[in-house]
Nucleic acid binder design. Structure first.
Lengths: 419, 419
DNA sequence: CGCTATTTGTTCAGTGGTTGAATTAAATGA
DNA sequence: TCATTTAATTCAACCACTGAACAAATAGCG
C-alpha cells in the first residue's frame, strides 16, 4: 500500500532561467562532466563518467575532447587501478590551466593567494597589521602590492590568472562598493575605483580578469565548501573582530536579495541587552565578538595589539587560563542561542566554526551543542555537527581564489569560447 | 575604468543535477514556454513567447503544439488586442486539464480544495472543529470524506485530478509520517497508512495520484508564492495555534536538509524566558502564539473554543479592546525581534503575515517594522515590506493544491509522457 | 475595393549534438 | 596463444533547434 503514496518533495523550482538553445546542450554537458571530474576523489575514466552521468560513452568522449583541448582537463599519466580489460585513462583537472587570484582585507591582516583549477594553493601571503588606523586607499595600495607579487609568482609557475576576488569584512553592493565595514571603520568605499590606480590588478590577462568584491564571510564559506569536508548545506561562522556567516544551501552560496545575507553578528541574543553600535540591543557580537571575549576574560586594554589578540586568546585557552575559559563558555552559549535560531529556521545539519573561532572550537563546541540540544525542535531526531573549519584563518582569501576557478568549472562554456 | 571591474555574483551554482540528454532539450523548453504562459498577465502569442524566451518562432510553435496536444494549453478564443498585421492567437493554461487536490488538517479546522492549472479554485470546503480531542485516525477519516466530496465535485466539472497534497501543522518526514505535531498532540502518525483505508484518496486517476504530505506553513508559503503578489524571495509566517514559517528563496520553497525548515515558533526571543514545552526557553510561540495573545489579552479560559478564538481576536481588535491591542503590540514586538534575526541572516525584503496573523496585520505591522528598523543592519538602505497574506486563512489547502499543478507546470515533460 | 505594410504563424532544408551499435585498443588470465 | 574483459572511438541515424522563406490575416490608405 505504501507504494501508492509517494511523499516528499513538493518543491516548485522556477522554470529554467533562459532559453535552452541548441548549443546550450553542449554547454550543459561540458559543465556536467567537468563538475563530476572536479568532484571525484580519484581521476575517473570516460567510461566511469558515462555511467555516472547517464550520458553515452560517445558523448562523454566528445565532451572530454573539448575540455582537454581547452586546457581544463588532462589525462592522468599513470594508470591508477588495474583489473581485467583495457586500462582506463584517468581524467583530472589541469594544473596548468586557468588559476584564480584571491585577496582579503580584514581588520588585522591582508592576504593574497593563487589557486589552480584543482584547488591547489600555489601562493599564499599574509601580511599582519592593524588596518583600522590606515586609510582605505592606503590599505588597498598595500593589498595591490601583495597582489602584484602573487601574480608574478603565479606567472613564474606558468599559471594563467583568470580573475580575482576580494573579500572584505562588510557589506558590499553590486558595484563592488563597500557600503559599511563597521569594524574596519569604512563607509562607502569605492574599492574598484581605488584599485584602478594600481596596475597589478587592472591589467587584463587573456582578456578576462574581472575583480569581484564580496563579503569575507561569504568567501570563507565558499572556501570551506570547496575544501571538501563540508556537505551540501551548512552554516559557516567567521569569528573575526566582527562575526559574519556564510550560508551554503545545496552546494551554492545563498546571498540574499541584495547580497547581504549572513549578518549573524547583529542577530539579537538578548533583545533588552546593552546597546550595540549597530543601533540594536544585545547583538551576538556583544557576547561573542573578539573584543567581548577579550574583555570578559579581563584582557581588554592597551598592551594587546589587534593583530595579536586572536593568537594570544588561543594560547591562554590552551594554558587553561580560568577567566579565558569562562569567557569562551559564555561566548559559546551566545553563539549556541543564535545557531539554534538558525537551525530552527533553516534545518541545517552542520555548523562550521571558522576564522578566529576555528582554533577555539574545542572550548566553544560544548556550550554551542548544549544550546542546540535544548532549543532545536528537531535535535532529538537528527544531530547537528559542529566542527572547526579545515582551512586556516585566511579561508576567505583561499575561498576568493577558489570562487574564480569554480566559476569556470560551473560554466566552462564561457571560458572555452574565449580561446 | 569601471568597466574593467565586473563585480557581484561569485555564486557557485552546483552543476546541473542530471544528465542533459537529447530529449531533455525539449523537456526544458516545454517547461520554459509553459512557465512563461503561466506567468504572463494576458495570454501571450507564440511570437511574443519567442521574443520573451529567446527561442525561434518555429521552435515555440513546435513546443506549443505539444502543449496543446497534451491538454495543458488552449488557444484563447477571442482575439485580445488589435494593431496592424495578422492577429495573434493568445495562449493560456487549459482549464480542462489536470487539477490538484489540496487538503489541510489544522488544530481548529479541516479543509479541502481543488485548483486547476490556471490557479482557479473550483472547490473549497472548510470544516471548523477542534481536532485536539480527536484521534488521528478519526481526523483523517473526516478528512477523507471531505476529499471524497471534493473529488466528486471536481469530476462533475470535468477536471482530472493529477495528485493531492496534504498540509499538517508539524514535522513530516520523507515517508509522509508526521513525526511531531505539538499543537495537535500527534506524534509519529503514519498518515499514508491511515489514509490507505479510505478509498477516496487511494484510487488512481490516470495512473498518477501520489499524495504528498507536507508542513502546512510550507504549503501556505507556496500558495502565497503562486497567488502572485509575493516576489521571488520572502518569509511567510503562519500564525495558527503554533507559529510556522515557509521560506521561499528565488521562487522555490526552501525545505532544509530534512524538510524541517521554518520552525520559527521555537526560535528563542528571550533565552532566559519561561520554559516552553519544546524544552527550550523563551520561544517565540510563548509571546506570539494564539494562546499567548489570548492570555495576555485576558481572554484565556473556557468560554472560547479553539475554533472561534481566531475570529474573536480580530473582532476585539477592530473594536479597539485595550487589552487586546496591548497584547497584539507585545506579540508584534516578539515577532519583530525574530523577523529581525531572519532578515539579518537571509537578507529578505518581504515578510508575509499569514494564517491568523493576516487579519491582524494592521496591528502587528507597526511593532514588527519598528524592531526591524532598530535591529537590521541593512534596514537603512533597503526597507523590508511587511504585508498580509492575500490568500484566506486556509492558504495551506490552496497552496497544497497549487503545488500539485505547479509541479506539472515546472516539469510538463513527465505529464505529457503519461498520455 | 484593391493595394501595401505589418505582424503572426508555419514549412522546410540545414546543422549541431546526442544515440546506439559496431569496431578497435589494450590489458588479464587460463 | 587465445578467449575474455573493459575502455575508447567511429559512424550512420535521429532528434530538436535554426534561419529564412512563405502563407495567413488584418489595418490603413487612396
Amino acid at each position: 500500500m505504501t507504494a501508492v503514496w509517494q511523499c516528499q518533495g513538493v518543491t516548485s523550482p522556477a522554470a529554467p532561467a533562459g532559453a535552452v538553445r541548441q548549443g546550450s546542450l553542449r554547454e550543459l554537458n561540458l559543465a556536467l562532466v567537468l563538475g563530476r571530474i572536479a568532484a571525484a576523489r580519484r581521476p575517473p575514466s570516460r567510461a566511469a563518467l558515462a555511467a555516472d552521468t547517464g550520458l553515452t560513452r560517445a558523448t562523454v568522449s566528445a565532451v572530454v575532447e573539448d575540455l582537454v583541448a581547452g586546457r581544463l582537463v588532462t589525462e592522468a599519466d599513470p594508470t591508477p587501478r588495474a583489473g581485467a580489460g583495457r586500462p582506463a585513462r584517468g581524467l583530472m583537472l589541469a594544473g596548468d590551466g586557468p588559476a584564480g587570484l584571491g585577496l582579503e582585507i580584514n581588520v588585522d591582516y591582508l592576504a593574497a593567494c593563487v589557486v589552480d583549477l584543482s584547488g591547489q594553493v600555489w601562493h599564499h601571503t599574509v601580511h599582519r597589521a592593524d588596518l583600522r588606523p590606515v586609510s582605505p586607499a592606503e590599505a588597498l595600495g598595500q593589498l595591490a602590492e601583495l597582489a602584484r607579487r602573487a601574480r608574478v609568482d603565479a606567472e613564474a609557475h606558468g599559471l594563467t590568472l583568470a580573475g580575482a576576488a576580494l573579500g572584505v569584512p562588510g557589506l558590499v553592493d553590486d558595484a563592488g562598493r563597500v557600503r559599511l565595514a563597521p569594524n574596519l571603520g569604512w563607509r562607502d568605499v569605492p574599492v574598484p575605483e581605488l584599485l584602478a590606480d594600481h596596475p597589478p590588478l587592472t591589467e587584463r590577462v587573456d582578456g578576462v580578469p574581472p575583480l569581484v568584491v564580496d563579503n569575507e564571510a561569504n568567501l570563507a564559506a565558499l572556501g570551506e565548501l570547496h575544501a571538501g569536508a563540508a556537505p551540501g548545506s551548512f552554516l559557516h561562522i567567521s569569528g573575526e573582530v566582527g562575526i559574519g556567516a556564510g550560508i551554503v544551501l545545496d552546494g551554492a552560496l545563498f546571498r540574499g536579495t541584495r547580497g547581504w545575507s549572513g549578518e549573524i553578528g547583529h542577530i539579537p541574543v538578548r533583545p533588552d541587552g546593552p546597546p550595540c553600535r549597530c543601533g540594536g540591543r544585545g547583538c551576538l557580537e556583544l557576547y561573542a565578538g573578539q573584543e567581548a571575549i577579550l574583555s570578559a576574560a579581563g584582557l581588554a586594554g592597551a598592551d594587546l595589539p589587534a593583530d595579536r589578540a586572536s593568537t594570544r586568546l588561543t594560547q591562554l585557552a590552551v594554558a587553561e587560563h580560568p577567566a579565558v575559559l569562562r569567557a569562551l563558555a559564555e561566548a559559546g552559549t551566545a553563539i549556541g542561542v543564535t545557531v539554534a535560531s538558525v537551525v530552527n529556521l533553516l534545518d541545517l545539519d552542520t555548523v562550521v566554526l571558522g576564522g578566529g573561532y576555528a582554533p577555539l572550537t574545542g572550548w566553544l563546541r560544548p556550550p554551542v551543542l548544549a544550546e542546540i540540544e535544548r532549543r532545536v525542535l528537531t535535535a532529538a531526531w537528527s544531530p547537528v555537527t559542529v566542527r572547526p573549519a579545515t582551512l586556516g584563518a585566511t579561508a576567505a582569501a583561499v575561498g576568493a581564489a577558489g570562487s574564480v576557478v569554480r566559476r569556470i568549472i560551473a560554466r566552462p562554456g564561457g571560458w572555452l569560447a574565449r580561446l
